[in-house]
Design a protein around this nucleic acid. Structure first.
Lengths: 196, 196
DNA sequence: GTCTATAAGCCGATAGAC
DNA sequence: GTCTATCGGCTTATAGAC
């Protein structure tokens, strides 16, 4: 896909800078003036590309939503086995490697209250809950819910939380999956796994 | 401790309402006007009790800080064994039951970016990192860091995340500790545990 | 301790020239 | 596509009466 130079590049630059500032300082605290200054344009120029502050958020959240929808759809079509749960986490970790997706999820985690009143935030939250439910399978006990939540958080935390500068994406993925695997393996006594 | 009626009760009411609104809507999005309206007083009355918006946060964060400091100090005086790690998590879970401490931690999690520029937030964050380090003992590998982080998050998540209305504090504590125990048991191959 | 009134400033968003 | 100029509104915070 070739890039229409003058028209589209500014829009992308706005998205990138906004995502960065929203994550570092918070959505509410970051003003459009600040974003504009960083790009050496005026506030009004931003309003040519986006009709509101919310819409800037929507612009970089939508790609992530599509990806999550794909994963949820795939997971729903699988049998509720341990193997499936492992694959869900593995695929979820894979999605974090590509493009800005890990940055978007970091923004999501750092702006939970701000995103509560934004549709973009509600939609991401909804998908995460769906994934957690799918990781629970038939077991809806508090313990299973907790394990599922922590398994997903394990992936995020290995990306955002672990202080180890030289770690590659593959290594982060490996650590996240090792710990997540322990958590989800213990889910699901109600149905014995891998019924034959 | 008796309550000096007219003088101190308004201050406490401000703290309670502010903590509630800051958590529900976010720190930045909640204005002093809104807090004042909810209490049927004027904004100026708030400024009699607190000299700034930040200071309202400090007022309910300080109690929590003292409690965390106690726990960190106790943990540092213990040997770096698995038994100690278990006790740290157990005591940490205990602190969540008393008073507004779980509410304060929920506020902390929901307002990470806002709290980054507030000293109150930086100090809580620092204590959480200390606890995570203590849970790691001699093992500073990425995997140990991740396990420690998730163990602490297990306690938070059982309080804030698990959807089970009828669950008592004791039951939440039980679930959190069961999962957290699995996580921290696997930390620390470098030093064999419980050396005799 | 609580009030009214107001200062001073930043915000998101819009209008219209170029 | 980007600009200048501006609007209306809301914010934190203060001054001073009661």
């Amino acid at each position: 896909m070739t890039v229409r130079e003058s028209t589209s590049s500014t829009r992308e630059r706005i998205k990138t800078v906004a995502l960065e500032l929203f994550t570092e300082q918070g959505y509410e605290k970051t003003s459009l003036r600040e974003i504009a200054e960083r790009l050496d344009v005026t506030k009004a120029a931003l309003y040519y590309h986006f009709k509101s502050k919310d819409e800037i958020v929507n612009s970089f959240v939508e790609d992530r939503l599509d990806q999550l929808d794909d994963l949820v759809a795939w997971a729903k079509a699988q049998p509720a086995t341990l193997t499936t749960r492992r694959s869900i986490i593995g695929r979820y970790a894979d999605t974090m490697c590509a493009g800005q997706h890990s940055s978007v999820m970091r923004f999501f985690e750092q702006n939970q209250t701000a995103l509560r009143s934004l549709t973009a935030g509600q939609r991401i939250r909804e998908r995460m809950l769906q994934l957690a439910d799918l990781l629970c399978g038939d077991d809806s006990s508090p313990e299973a819910q907790l394990r599922a939540t922590l398994a997903l958080f394990s992936v995020h935390s290995s990306w955002f939380g672990v202080r180890a500068p030289g770690l590659t994406d593959q290594e982060r993925r490996g650590v996240a999956l090792k710990v997540a695997d322990e958590l989800i393996t213990a889910i699901g006594p109600p149905t014995t796994d891998d019924p034959r």
